[in-house]
Every structure is written in structure tokens, then in C-alpha cells.
């Protein structure tokens, strides 16, 4: 049975960047990787932006055919049930909030069959305006579970301030992440730190920032 990781979270919590990091790491280890861009909410700034890099690294990318086009049609023209039955590591990048997680709900029965091979990680950002309080982050997490009909299995602390992220930004988010983790009784899978900061601290997982602002592309 293939391993499945679903990434959920608030708009702008860094889901696409986390999904891309997981995919690139697994591909570097020689694994067969498939990424599904399940975002039916955002018209742009999404996993589909990395199509070229994925192709170069042998990562299969499945996106709604209207992603990054001029059509405003949130239709899914692929079948996750069938995709999930093939082999390799499957990463599903879900749209923001519970609004985005509705699309996932349609596939919940098939995905829940994966049991221990299924992880759903909730990405949090202490600096995201609407999830600044642990209680707000917790409420959204449960709303996503209601919409997706799948239970989370872990938390990814991806607290950041975009280009302004410093080591202190990340370090001072740890108590917040712990509070969220304790409230929902789920482990912190990892806390991220941008690799460019060069911080050597085993509390953090260094990640690449693939999401580039449009004025640096």
C-alpha cells in the first residue's frame, strides 16, 4: 500500500512550500513521488507553479486542468481514488482553510482506508493574522477535519514572516506550537527553519523556500 501525506492549513501557512519540500526530499532519496495539487480555492500562487522543477526531478504532478489558466472553474478532472491505488509516495496539497478542505471530503472514504499509511499534517504559522492565538489555530484545525472527514495525525510548525523571517522569528514560535499540539493531543512532526538562515539547531528541520516573490522570478 502506498504512503499518503495530506497537507492542510490556513491560507498562506506555507502548505505548498512544505509539500514541495517533502516531494523534493523523497525524490532525492530515489522514491517515486506523486504530488496532487488539490487547491480549488486559489486562482494562482499554488503547487502547480513548480511544474517545471517537479518534471526535472522526476516528480509526477497532478493538477486540476484549469490551475493557472484564465478559467475560474474549480473542477477536479482526476480521480484520487485511482491515483492512490498506484505505488510510490503520494502528497496531497489541499487548498486553504476548511473552504479548501471541502474538495478533500469527497475522497475521504477512499483515503481513510489507508489507515496507518495515511498522515494528515496541519501546517500552522504563529504569525498568520487569523491563527495568532493557539485557540484560533485549534478551531480551524477541527473545521478542516469536519470539511475533509479525515482526522489529522500531526502538526507542522511552519511559523514564518515570509522574506522577513529570522532565527528569532522561528525560535519564539515554539511555545505557541507546543500549546497547539497539547490542545489537540497531536505530535509536532517538525518545526521548519529556512535553510538560508544557516541555523544549526536540532529542534528544527531546515527547508528550502521554493515560493519566490513575483519580483524575484
Amino acid at each position: 500500500m502506498r504512503k499518503v501525506t495530506i497537507i492542510t492549513g490556513h491560507y498562506g501557512s506555507g502548505k505548498s512550500n512544505i509539500s514541495t519540500n517533502l516531494a523534493m526530499e523523497a525524490a532525492a532519496e530515489g522514491k517515486k513521488v506523486t504530488v496532487v495539487d488539490l487547491d480549488i480555492v486559489n486562482p494562482y500562487f499554488r503547487t502547480a507553479d513548480f511544474a517545471k522543477m517537479f518534471e526535472e526531478n522526476g516528480i509526477e504532478l497532478i493538477t486540476p486542468s484549469y490551475a493557472n489558466t484564465n478559467l475560474d472553474i474549480p473542477a477536479l478532472n482526476f480521480d484520487i481514488e485511482r491515483i492512490a491505488k498506484s505505488d510510490g509516495y503520494l502528497i496531497i496539497d489541499v487548498g486553504g482553510d476548511d473552504d479548501g478542505a471541502i474538495a478533500l471530503g469527497r475522497f475521504s472514504a477512499a483515503l481513510n482506508e489507508f489507515g496507518d499509511n495515511l498522515d494528515m499534517f496541519y501546517v500552522i504559522n504563529r504569525y498568520r493574522y487569523l491563527t495568532k492565538e493557539p485557540s484560533e489555530a485549534v478551531e480551524l484545525m477541527y473545521n478542516i477535519e469536519t470539511a475533509s472527514k479525515i482526522k489529522h495525525t500531526g502538526i507542522i510548525n511552519n511559523s514564518n514572516l515570509g522574506c522577513d523571517t529570522l532565527a528569532d522569528t522561528v525560535i519564539s514560535s515554539l511555545p505557541y506550537a507546543d500549546m497547539v499540539s497539547q490542545s489537540v493531543n497531536l505530535p509536532i512532526v517538525f518545526s521548519t527553519i529556512p535553510r538560508r538562515l544557516g541555523v544549526d539547531d536540532n529542534r528544527f528541520k531546515p527547508i528550502e523556500i521554493y515560493v519566490k516573490p513575483f519580483w524575484e522570478r
Partner: peptide, 11 residues
Amino acid sequence: DGLLGQMMEPV
């Protein structure tokens, strides 16, 4: 414009 509406930045 759509870029500004959809982008994330600290405020």
C-alpha cells in the same frame, strides 16, 4: 490587482 490581492506579506 490580482497579484496584490492574492499575495501574502507581513503587515
